[in-house]
Every structure is written in structure tokens, then in C-alpha cells.
Lab assay of single mutants.
Amino acid sequence: NITNLCPFDEVFNATRFASVYAWNRKRISNCVADYSVLYNFAPFFAFKCYGVSPTKLNDLCFTNVYADSFVIRGNEVSQIAPGQTGNIADYNYKLPDDFTGCVIAWNSNKLDSKVGGNYNYLYRLFRKSNLKPFERDISTEIYQAGNKPCNGVAGFNCYFPLRSYGFRPTYGVGHQPYRVVVLSFELLHAPATVCGPKKST
């Protein structure tokens, strides 16, 4: 009989979020998941679920829940969905086509923008091939755009693969920082350890 609540607040209220190319993952297990707390949290810009209804989450049990978190621009949030393409979905964070879970995003301009620009948040701009679902690539190898080998030196046709967002408070909404948490639900042939409040007695 599990009684402790799942530590969703640790994920959602973290002081610093990860850059999207180096997205953070927390495994959540052996706890009671009260999703209504999240669902009623006012400032969400997006709360979209795939393969599961957000209002039914509290009735369900899962083997594991993974909480992935990172920061992207407002106009990139739409790429955090199954079957998407674009710089983020291709080179930074890719969801599987059969994704079961929820994508939760909110504007973090007050936290993550600075006058003069916040350059701490990076994304991958160049990559030889697209990421596989949930693949994480933190390499900083110089990207070779031409035929000539770069030998690890940036220059003509040789690019550092990461780019900084440089968030400023005055940017338009599409270019403002958004914090994103992706909850993915794993249902294995194993005992369920993460259940909603109704199922955990």
C-alpha cells in the first residue's frame, strides 16, 4: 500500500531547467500520482495528452512514469508532439509516433530571460542525422557541412553544433522561453508502482 505522493513538484518547480539538447529525465516510481494538482495549476500554456485522457489519469496505474524537462522557445512547443519535424524534434528531443503521455508547457519569461540576454539555454542546430525517439545527444563535436574534414576547428563550413537562445524579456511570445515537462507513461508486464489516488488503496 503506497502512500507517499509522487515528487512532481520537484520537477515542475525546479529552480533551473535543462537546455533542450541535454534534456533532463527523472524516473518516478513507487508513489501516488495526483495529476489533478498539475491539471489545476493555472499558468499552463499547453497540457496535451496522447493515448490517454488527462482527466482519467487519476484512475490509472503505470509501471513507471518518466518526467523529461527542458526549455525551448514558445514557437517550438508545437514540435513536442508525435510525428513532428523541425530543429527541436529532429536534433534535440524526439517523441515516438506511438507516444503515451502528456506534454505540459508554460511561459517562463520572468524566470529564464535576462536584460542583455540569458545565454545559458542551448539547443542543437546541426546534426548529421535525426534523433531516434528519446535519444539524447550531448556531443559538442564540430559539425562538418562541406567535404573538408574540420579536425575539431570551427570555421568555413565547420560549425559548433550548439546555439544559444539568448532570451531577453522584451522578445515577442514566440521567442520567449517556455518550460516543458513531458510525462511518459510506461506500461510493462510488471507490477504497477505509480497509481492515481483512487487506485492506491
Rank of each mutant, 00 (worst) to 15 (best):
L188S: 15
T63A: 13
V37H: 11
E186Y: 08
P82G: 03
N87I: 15
G86C: 01
I104S: 04
P191S: 13
T15W: 05
V194S: 11
N92R: 03
N151K: 12
E135F: 06
P149W: 08
N4V: 10
Q79H: 05
F8S: 03
N157W: 03
F45C: 09
A18G: 10
I2H: 14
E135W: 05
P7M: 08
P54D: 09
S139G: 14
V180N: 01
N64S: 14
F156S: 06
W106Y: 11
R73F: 01
F70G: 01
I104D: 00
C195P: 12
A22T: 08
I2S: 14
A14F: 04
F156E: 04
K114W: 10
P54M: 15
R163Y: 15
C6N: 07
D137Q: 03
N120F: 09
K148C: 09
L125C: 11
N87L: 15
S200E: 13
V77T: 00
N87D: 06
T55G: 14
T55D: 15
Y165R: 02
T85V: 10
E10P: 05
N75Y: 15
Y121T: 05
F44D: 13
V194E: 12
L5H: 12
D9E: 14
N157F: 02
N24P: 03
L111Q: 14
N4D: 13
I142N: 03
S184Y: 10
C31A: 07
E135K: 07
A67D: 00
V37M: 14
R16D: 12
P43H: 10
F41M: 15
K26Y: 09
N109I: 06
L122W: 11
Y121P: 07
C61T: 11
Y35H: 08
A81Q: 09
I138Y: 09
N157P: 01
K94S: 07
L111H: 12
G152Q: 11
D137K: 03
Y93H: 01
S200M: 15
Y91L: 07
V65F: 09
R136E: 04
Y165T: 01
P149V: 09
P169K: 06
G152M: 10
S139Y: 07
F41C: 08
N1D: 12
V71Y: 01
E76R: 03
C31G: 06
S29C: 10
A22I: 07
F160I: 12
S69T: 11
D9G: 12
P191H: 13
E76K: 03
Y123A: 15
Y119D: 08
E141P: 09
R27I: 15
R124M: 00
Y123T: 15
A154G: 10
P169M: 04
R16W: 10
I142S: 03
G155F: 04
R136P: 02
E186C: 07
F160N: 14
T201K: 15
D68Y: 04
S113H: 01
A145E: 02
A18S: 12
W106V: 09
A46K: 15
Y171D: 00
V32P: 05
Y39M: 14
K26D: 07
R16I: 11
L5D: 12
T193D: 13
S36P: 07
P191A: 13
L188V: 13
L122E: 13
D34W: 05
L38I: 15
C195M: 11
V65Y: 07
D112G: 03
P169V: 04
V182P: 00
Y35L: 14
I2R: 14
N58W: 07
K56L: 11
Y39A: 14
F167K: 01
A190S: 14
D137H: 04
Y91M: 08
Y21V: 10
N13P: 03
P177C: 02
G117S: 03
K48F: 05
V182A: 05
V32S: 09
S69R: 05
A192I: 12
C61P: 10
S53L: 11
K128V: 09
A89H: 05
I80Y: 00
G74Q: 06
L125W: 15
Y21T: 06
W106T: 06
I88H: 02
N118W: 04
K199V: 14
N24M: 08
S108F: 02
W106P: 00
D9Y: 13
F167A: 00
A145D: 00
R179N: 00
P96V: 04
V181W: 03
K94G: 04
R73A: 15
K56D: 13
C102T: 02
R179G: 00
Q79C: 04
F126K: 05
A46E: 14
A22L: 07
R163E: 10
D112T: 02
K48L: 05
I142R: 02
D137A: 03
F134E: 07
R16G: 08
V71H: 02
V181Y: 04
V77R: 09
A33S: 10
F45A: 15
D112M: 03
I142G: 02
N58V: 09
K148S: 13
G152H: 10
I88Y: 01
Y50E: 00
F70C: 00
C150K: 02
F41R: 12
A105P: 02
Q176P: 01
G101R: 02
F44M: 11
Q144I: 07
F99A: 00
F12E: 02
Y35W: 15
K48S: 08
T3Q: 11
F167V: 00
F134M: 09
K94P: 01
N87R: 14
K128R: 13
T55W: 11
L125P: 15
T3P: 11
F134A: 09
L60M: 15
L187N: 15
Y143S: 02
N1C: 07
Y35D: 07
Y39F: 15
R27P: 08
V103S: 01
L5S: 13
K132A: 13
V52K: 05
Q84T: 13
L95S: 01
Y66P: 01
K148G: 09
Y178F: 15
L131S: 02
D137S: 04
V181D: 00
T170E: 01
F8E: 02
P96I: 02
T63H: 10
L188A: 15
G174Y: 09
P82R: 04
R136G: 03
K56Y: 07
G101S: 01
Y171W: 05
S36Y: 06
V181K: 01
D98C: 07
L125V: 06
L60E: 09
R16E: 14
K26L: 09
A14Q: 14
F70K: 01
S36G: 11
C49S: 03
F45K: 15
E141W: 07
C195W: 10
Q79L: 04
F167R: 02
N87M: 15
P191G: 14
P169L: 05
S53D: 15
Y165V: 03
A46D: 11
Y35T: 09
P96S: 07
V52C: 10
T85W: 09
Q176T: 02
R179A: 00
T170Y: 04
G86I: 01
P133T: 06
C31T: 07
G101C: 01
V182W: 01
K94L: 02
F70V: 01
F44G: 14
G174T: 08
Q84G: 12
N40Y: 08
F167C: 00
N13W: 05
L183F: 07
G101F: 01
A145N: 06
L183R: 01
I80N: 01
V103T: 05
Y143D: 00
A18F: 07
